[in-house]
Amino acid sequence: MQLDQRTVGDAMIITVNEPRIDALCAIQFKEQMRILSADAPQRVLLDLGQVDFIDSSGLGAIVAALKQMNDGQSLELACLSETVQKVFRLTRMDSVFKIHADVPDLGSCDA
Rank of each mutant, 00 (worst) to 15 (best):
M12P: 09
N70M: 13
D52E: 12
S37T: 10
T15K: 11
A111M: 03
A26N: 10
K30T: 13
Q5L: 02
C109V: 01
E76Q: 04
V51W: 04
N70D: 13
S56R: 14
I35T: 11
V44F: 01
R6L: 00
Q73S: 05
K98P: 01
V87Y: 14
R6Y: 01
Q42T: 08
I27P: 02
K30Q: 08
Q32I: 09
A78N: 01
V8T: 03
D10F: 08
Q68H: 12
C25I: 12
V87C: 13
Q85H: 11
A40R: 07
L3S: 06
D39K: 00
D71F: 15
D39I: 02
S81D: 02
R20Y: 14
L80W: 07
S57P: 01
V8L: 02
D47K: 03
D10R: 12
I62A: 02
K67S: 09
S95G: 09
D71N: 13
D4N: 11
D47C: 05
A111F: 03
P41N: 04
T83V: 14
Q42G: 05
C79W: 15
G49D: 08
R34H: 08
N17Q: 06
D4R: 10
P41D: 02
A26E: 06
V16C: 15
K86H: 15
G9L: 10
I21K: 02
A26G: 07
G9M: 13
N70S: 11
R20H: 08
A26T: 02
G107K: 07
D22Y: 09
L36A: 00
M93K: 01
Q5N: 08
A64T: 07
P19Y: 03
Q32G: 12
A65G: 09
E76F: 00
S95L: 15
N17E: 03
D94Q: 09
D22V: 09
R34K: 14
V96R: 06
S57W: 00
L75M: 00
R92D: 08
S95C: 08
D22M: 12
